[in-house]
Nucleic acid binder design. Sequence first.
RNA 1: GAGUGCGUAGCUCAGCCGGUAGAGCAACGGACUUUUAAUCCGUAGGUCCUGGGUUCGAGUCCCAGCGCACUCACCA
Length: 508
Amino acid sequence: MSSNVTRLEAARLEKLEKIKALGLDPWGQRFDGHIHVEEARNQCPEEKGVDGPAVRIAGRIARWSDSGKLRFGHVQDYTGRIQVMISRKDVGDDVWSLMECLERGDIVGVDGILRVSNTGEKTVFVTKLHILCKSLAQPPEKWHGLQDTETQLRQRYTDMIYNPQVLERMFKRLRIMDAIRATLKGHEYFEVETPVLHAIAGGAAARPFVTHHNALDIPLYLRIALELHLKRLMVGGIERVYEMARVFRNEGVDSTHNPEFTMIELYQAYGDYESMMDLAEELISNACRAANGATTVQWGDLTLDFTPPFQRARYGDLFREHAGCDMEDEEAVRMLAHRLGIEHQGRHIDVVINDVFEATVEDKLVGPVFVIDYPAAMCPLTKRKAGNPAIAERFELFIHGMELANAYTELNDPLLQDELFRTQLQGLADEDSMAKMDHDFVRALKVGMPAAGGMGIGIDRLVMLLTNTHSIRDVIFFPLLKPEQFDEHGVSLDEPPPGSEAIDQQDG
RNA sequence: GAGUGCGUAGCUCAGCCGGUAGAGCAACGGACUUUUAAUCCGUAGGUCCUGGGUUCGAGUCCCAGCGCACUCACCA
């Protein structure tokens, strides 16, 4: 085959054969006793002419340059890069011949002495080399790296190797998730797993993905929220419970939305939304510290400060301040909506208030600020404020106009819950409504769920904020893309073959 | 969903008014014992995203499609 894809691959296959001819396994074997690059760098003396300890490292060749009877390279693992140097006069023929078969992208084990080079760079002076995996793929350009966005997303593995900031950012994500789990463990929360396949896609207002169970011949939905099962577990006796996991929403894709994304929802029996505010401050400041070593972080030109406590402001007060009228004054709100070009006729007043709030207030919330006490009608799973059934005990945490967390004092009145599930607000499309009857959930509440606080946080968005990342795709290892098409040789095609047009998605 | 932009060698990119397809890196061959994107000499490498159209002639202009990005609207 004369394809260019295989032109460079052929050169690598030739080297692979040479490695075999040396009696070595080009795919490598178990390799014990190595230390990480970061550790090796720590052990390397700073002074020239001073020998450090003998070490063993393992990693991928990131640079490999030939200058006659010397060879310099960089070996990288997830802790960093370190230079290696091979001198013809210091190694046997076996090492030298293997070295000649190696190139950028290969994974090697290295034994050698730590010492700085003449130019002062920490270096492993090689005594022995081990091939641990031959790479058959041509690496991207060594100076510019991999720049093409599509290739970065489709071949994330390559992106992670040759754009070091990608791996660094994803490790921050992992540390943030660890910090959240550690914080919750400190408060005696249990992490649980609940069903992903739902017969009723409840707990949020979103369009679900639909699938089908063959043996049972029933439609099923991928979950859009974690809420209703976690509350059932509180009924069952798990007092503090959370799940940090994937949910699925069949909606648009852009720089802040991926069809599958990670949420944490947590519930605390005998708490309320005030307990959730304290916990939110602790969770987010700990997460920020885990990622950045401080409770502040750069966000573009701004500095975000997550040092507790966060400001608290009533929804109604903010509404009066920024919208310019009382939200209880229905006539004034409708006039204002009209002036703002917001549809209000035939729509429930709380739906209109919500739209006006989003249009006039949200951008002004620098924060971090807890917006508390929401109009009740938009919150069918939330307990009403004592003495004021028009207000729900709910907060949303905003920072620079972005919503970071959403929390409630949870509704545990089965009679009111049943009624709210049956109430479809005027002016809300089906998919925008959280009112989806779930008889089993009402039955569970009849058994009795303790008064509780509950909170949800979008993990991907939190990671974006804490890592100064402005696209959700860059905090998700494998964001959704349209499928790539390949020919029978595994060569990527630009155009789908005839007859492979997309299968119609249902649109409910 | 609408608008705008991009798609050229493995990678990063040039390609002007429509006139033989270019560079750097990478690859291959050679020189080189302290390099840092090493350097130097040489060789090879192209479905210019796909399909139509205009033209004597299209990477370039026009139409349609595919993919990706950005902006706007909606969901977190």
